[in-house]
Design a protein around this nucleic acid. Structure first.
Lengths: 342, 342
DNA sequence: TTGAAAGCGTTACCAT
DNA sequence: ATGGTAACGCTTTCAA
């Protein structure tokens, strides 16, 4: 069923039917109602290609995922963000499209999306330090919102971010308050902007409390399970091993736990572990005890905000960049205990 | 840059330029070359809406994700499948689109996608037992491939699946061989087809070895971390607790491990745990030791196959349904040991 | 309040 | 081998 046949059914012109369906004021209420009912009855939906061609709008948001980032897709956080974003897109009538590209080819992918007029805007995920994609998108004039920020980029851009620095600062302070003095950080790749901010928070807390940071206790790699295992083993083999480990990903934490298990240590007694994106709540001692949930719960929200921002940026050309910082909730519970006595 | 201006630049008609670019044979090689170079130089890409309108092809594959399935998105396996599929789509020139819907509204979503001509085909993920979406899609004539199967559906459809039953059968046999007699199963929701198959495999192995299945030892819920924690605690509180736990998700396994930790038990000595989708390889005792990787490694492959199938189904109307069963790799290593002596 | 017709950027048919 | 033109299904301008 297309507009033409629908109009014929109704004995009206395509123009009137189109206007009735798109809420134009100059159509009589009686006609509008009749049209709407007929459309409903025949299950008419405007052909999205034709509509897009006529309006110049794709009603589509692009997400370009660099391939090297295998764990971007696999990462639970990616899913949370997408869930939040897609729900919000739906509200604004947008669809969501994914493009996977070889690592360096994001630029090419953006150019194609724009040239093909396949999307009205894009969300930039996983920004790096000094990420060149931002300048590119600005130059191209393709509306975009960054999930995260990019240290070193001087020009203005829209972003929504979680306060990674503050979250890790507070987690570190929490461990220090428990008496820990040797706190390890298993960070993500520090070319990623968020990882650098987390590191900053960690270092800031140490410094603020008069503790020296030890390079031995800091690792930064892609956040896999194997990474968590290997580096924990390596940390535990140090002459003076850490009494606490702060890790940047739920997946990495699985490896950390395994390594601790395999070493015959007991979590929360011999060593404490904090993960930033553990599950939201936990049953312990018969009641729900929230644990350190700093970031994960905010990610979904970030997705929703990014979508709303993008909708506005697309509607309003030359809109001033919008920014939004989310404070992470911080609650810490199980798997952390006082530092063991030497 | 559109076709018209490109043609003007070249002093050719749009027809010729279009033909040159689309590989039609009736254009001279000299012209083709000249056109291709100009297109390259001006960064010309055909407008996807216009092309779609003219060809009747959207060059887009839809993925409809029911909202209730929060963990479908978050599940690492989802990411793996998407990674595999999107790479294959790219090969065939398709883009990938996501639609999230309220739980019961998948049907409505498919109808809209078809009516809007937004997609050429869809991938059906997370099929349930007797999933009504399959009959619907068949009736609608929208090409689709199911990732998984649906027990109880009698009509033919295309699918690609991993042999879940055999994988869990083998895992259970492995534990039995280690001397375990009380093996618990923390399964996913058994309305999901894959969960039922896993249960079948587990039960079949027990029966085959002359062991009675105990309802006490079988749980089936949404595969969250909290679920793993709670049910493990509950299992350990039984009069005769299990000596091994077989769990259906990496995320659930995190909860299982925590519960075991909190109970003061030692993994691999007091109790064994097998997860189906742990990381692919593990460093232990100085070398990489594969663990139970039954399913996860196959999922990416499943995505690729689904994409290829779909491309063929779209190209060939009334193509006979295609099916493909993947055998899961099974290697079991750490976290499992002989059953403790009573 | 309604309708005719041009236009969006392609492809594909029919000429030449 | 190349070009003119209709067609794809919609929106939007201009007329009535």
């Amino acid at each position: 069923m297309n507009l033409k046949t629908l109009a014929e059914q109704l004995g009206l012109s395509q123009t009137t039917v189109s206007r009735a369906l798109n809420g134009y004021p100059e159509v009589s209420e009686a006609t509008r109602l009749r049209v709407q009912q007929a459309a409903e009855q025949f299950g008419y939906r405007p052909n999205s290609r034709a509509k897009g061609l006529a309006t110049g709008r794709a009603m589509m948001i692009g997400h370009v995922i660099p391939t090297s980032n295998k764990h971007e897709m696999v990462n639970p956080v990616f899913g949370d963000f997408v869930a939040g974003a897609s729900e919000a897109y739906a509200k604004f009538g947008y669809d969501m499209m994914f493009t996977r590209v070889q690592d360096g080819n994001a630029e090419q992918a953006y150019r194609e999306l724009l040239a093909k007029r396949a999307v009205d805007g894009v969300v930039l995920q996983g920004p790096l330090i000094n990420d060149s994609r931002i300048a590119l998108l600005n130059k191209m004039g393709l509306p975009f919102v960054v999930h995260g920020r990019s240290t070193g980029v001087s020009e203005a851009y829209s972003w929504v971010d979680v306060n990674n620095k503050r979250a890790f600062e507070r987690a570190t302070e929490f461990l220090i308050d428990l008496g820990h003095r040797r706190i390890a950080l298993l960070n993500g790749l520090e070319t990623m902007d968020f990882a650098q901010r987390r590191r900053d928070g960690y270092l800031h807390a140490l410094k603020h409390r008069g503790l020296a940071a030890s390079p031995d206790l800091m690792r930064a790699q892609e956040m896999t399970e194997v990474y968590g295992y290997r580096e924990t083993m390596s940390l535990l083999a140090l002459k003076t091993p850490p009494t606490a480990i702060l890790t940047s990903s739920m997946i990495t934490a699985i490896g950390v736990r395994r390594a601790i298990e395999d070493s015959g240590l007991k979590m929360g007694r011999d060593i404490s572990v904090i993960t930033h994106d553990d599950d939201l709540s936990y049953l312990k001692n018969g009641q729900d005890v929230p644990i350190f949930t700093a970031l994960r719960s905010s990610v979904r929200q970030a997705g929703e905000i990014a979508a709303a921002m993008l909708a506005e940026l697309i509607d309003t050309p030359d809109h001033a960049p919008m920014t939004r910082m989310l404070e992470a909730e911080l609650v810490v519970g199980c798997s952390s205990g006082p530092a063991p006595q030497d």
